[in-house]
Amino acid sequence: MAIAATLKDIAKSVGVSLATVSRVLNYDRTLSVSESTRKQIFEVAEELNYTKLKHRTATPSKQLKIAIVQWYSKTKELDDLYYMSIRLGLEKRCEERRILATRTFQNDLQAIDPDVDAIIAIGKFSDAQVEAMSQLTPNLVFVDQDQLCHGYDSVVTDFRFAVTQVLDFYAKHGHQEVGLLYGSEWTTDGQLEVVDPRYKAFRREMEARGTYNPKLVFGGDYTNHSGYQEMQTAIAQLGDDLPSAFFITNDPMAAGALKALHENNIDVPQRVSLFSFNDTTIAKYVFPELSSVHVNTELLGATAVDLVENRLQTGRTTPQLVTVGTELKLRESTKG
């Protein structure tokens, strides 16, 4: 579907102008629009990325009840569409399977039905938070965090191979020095700092190639503003030594970095190429469009539901770790 047509579809569905949709998807904070409208625009945009369900399975004799625990707040979820996309994929699979799904944000476990059959937890959680959820049900599935060592089903992305693919692409096109903008954050109880696995993979791979340069690495917090600030810092500190390519570990940060480059009259991709990660909706709505590692968020969410069904239907107690692969989506922010 063409981007212009998609924008029109979003505008029509939400009941706002085409310009409003475009500005919201580009994180234009100067636009006066309500949070509810902003949320609706992002949700409709993500919905349009999913294939409509063609088949429905038979309704089970007992309707399963699943609680979705999202570690982000409703507002923060809009700042990083990755987790919202996973949730939407999960909810679609539940709808397909006639499973009753309820959601709670920021680990509000008090809101969970005590008779729930399983919990699917999206995001990052400390040991204490995992223990609290296990008191409600032994049937836990984690999406985007490997909890296999604690005995729980987990669905994760293959970060290491994806980062290697990006660096191989850059090397093939003559970019030997590559900068990195990455994020870090804490679980909502402040007990666990979550270091970006893409940073770990990037450093390991670049050190193996003998090209790792810590002066080209900048840490933020995954937000659009953080990407903008860190790129401004990189431009100021590195000057003419600014590398010809950057890998940025999520789309909001990449969009912010792109804005900083524009403001400093640094051409993308002629002077600096950008490669992002997650390939959420915003990657296609900035200019130039962002090359990004595509993560099949719909599949991540759907797989979590499948694991719940398998565990409940078969009585399986052995935990499973499912790793979902990625693919590179090349767009205008990179040369090649």
Rank of each mutant, 00 (worst) to 15 (best):
L148A: 04
V16N: 02
Q135Y: 12
Y222C: 00
Q70E: 14
E95Y: 13
L258W: 03
D251S: 06
T233S: 14
E177Q: 15
A58S: 15
V14L: 00
T323Y: 05
L216V: 01
D146I: 09
E185V: 12
A101I: 11
P252Y: 00
R331E: 03
V268G: 01
F159S: 14
S276D: 02
L307K: 09
E205D: 15
D28K: 11
V143Q: 00
F125W: 00
G315P: 04
N265E: 14
R29T: 12
G325L: 11
L88R: 15
T249L: 09
T281L: 15
S73T: 14
V194L: 12
I235E: 04
K65C: 12
T314G: 02
R204N: 14
D108G: 09
S226M: 00
G151N: 01
L300C: 08
H55W: 13
S126L: 07
D28Y: 10
N107A: 12
T233Y: 11
Q270N: 14
P319V: 03
E77C: 05
A111F: 08
Q145A: 00
G219N: 12
A4K: 14
G325C: 09
F247T: 10
D144M: 09
D108H: 13
V44I: 15
I122R: 04
L167C: 07
G179M: 06
R271G: 03
D127K: 14
K335I: 15
A201I: 08
V178L: 01
Q165V: 10
K329Q: 15
F275W: 13
R29L: 14
E96N: 13
R331D: 11
T102Y: 10
Q320H: 09
T249C: 11
L238V: 01
T249F: 02
A254M: 02
V143W: 05
T233P: 01
D117H: 06
F287S: 15
T157F: 02
S244N: 12
A132K: 12
I41S: 00
P114T: 03
L167P: 00
V286G: 02
Q313R: 14
E327P: 03
S244K: 14
